[in-house]
Design a protein around this nucleic acid. Sequence first.
RNA 1: GGCCCGUUCGUCUAGGGGUUAGGACGCAGGAUUUUCAUUCCUGAAACACGGGUUCGAUUCCCGUACGGGCUACCA
Length: 511
Amino acid sequence: MDSIRLRFAPSPTGALHIGGIRTALYNFLLARQQKGTFVLRIEDTDQARYVPGAEDYILEALEWCGLQPDEGPGIGGDYGPYRQSERKDLYGKYAQQLIESGHAYYAFDTADELAEKRAAAEANGNTFKYDAKVRHQLVNSLTLSDEEVQKRLDRGDNYTVRLAVPPDELILIDDLVRERVQFHTNELDDKVILKSDGMPTYHLANIVDDHLMKITHVIRGEEWLPSTAHHVLLYRFLGWEDTMPTFAHLPLIMKPTGKGKLSKRDGAKLGIPVFPLSWEGPNPENTFKGFREFGFVPDAVNNFLAFLGWNPGTEQEIFDKEELITAFSVEKIGKSGARFDYDKARWFNQQYLIRMLDSDLLPHVKPIIEAHGHQPDEAFLLTFIGLMKERVHLLPEFWEQGHYFFTDYQSLDEKMVSKKWKPEFRTAFDDLHQLLRDTESFTTESLQTTVKGFINDHGYKFGNILPILRLGLTGTTKGPDIFATMALLGRAEVDRRLQASYQRFDQLTQE
RNA sequence: GGCCCGUUCGUCUAGGGGUUAGGACGCAGGAUUUUCAUUCCUGAAACACGGGUUCGAUUCCCGUACGGGCUACCA
């Protein structure tokens, strides 16, 4: 048996949201696990909805997530082109073949005429469906004479090609996730397979391309389940039923709150990312901030996404990409929609930050610090990262919570100062200050010995001295070990800040 | 409306005819850290409902309710 071939086939109609990334991820995971091929195909058959830049976005998003396709636009492969607009000429032939075999027909009804019929039916509480029951009353090659059809074709009249869905049949679909699903053809409409602009619709293009590209497994969102019956018919009529891919329809990702599936709007509304990368739209409503910009690392996003609708059946939660590849199985994909839980996403990210090597974090943290105008050397940054990484969830928090390592703190927790500072501590702190200035080695360990010794020798309380020391140095009572903080700050800086701080404390408490 | 899919703690889920229904996020409490975070411990928290089938159903079947998707010359 040949190796499997999977594909991710997004439409470049805007930024790709996290649901699309999950679909790509599952395809990628299965392809890698089975030593198969992961194909990217751009489904740009809808001229009206095409958005410039969307394809680049898809490529960049996949790259950021580490889901590189083996074949695709700009990548190459033996089954290209991988952009449907560039395959336009291919599809007509198959539509023609279907017409000749009686499985499709020309339809001359205009979009307006059909819309009217729909509206009329709706007014009567009915639904208009272009199907076997009514196609003989409409304007198409089934009702028109051959001469008339030819005349209209020659004249250049607009037409679509519709699939002639046969009546009274049961279509059985064996889905890897849903098991057996069935549809009755009497419920199905005669789908347009070729539009009047000559472009195929999703249905035709998808089947032709999946066949030509030798796709073995179709993993896609559940929104495609209802049209799968049409797809099965297409495979049959084209004579490709034997090599029809296996389907797996994924449960949808639902809104964090409220009802319905996750949408672009949910991100802005709740202040959370629903896109992998930021997207600049033409207006603020179409501009979104991505997971990358929020400060997530790719593996954490993959891990989080993988668990939305799938789980390994064990109690392990943290899986890097390689582990996901070995653990993944289609059989363990769930059937019901999964609600997007941002808190859990943050937790995954935190777990990754904690586990990552300081040196691997460096390229992520360095630009953040530099963006705030500081160019610390690498050794300093590495120590900083080691001190901070287990107390942040998102990358930007390295700066938000650790800015005082690079510049004097901007804000002082005044409430804590007035709670902890008493003017009579002044002498004690002057002595400590002096001691710190004169101490021989400015390392975490010796600093700890020195300060603790000082406190014990004078009979002070740790709870009085340490918080004030931290406040004076960092402006806050939170943060990494105070001795490690001092060691990183360095003797001169510690001296400077203490000098300034105690005066501020006095002022504050006098007012 | 019609068709299709689904329903275990608030959320993600494991499980499956007889279980104290397990884990994770979040939440609450505690221990460690004389801070914060991490880590660890503890706690509250679920089988939608009604009928069957069965000695026994959360698990199987049928309904109902609820949720979701589709119902375009969009994908």
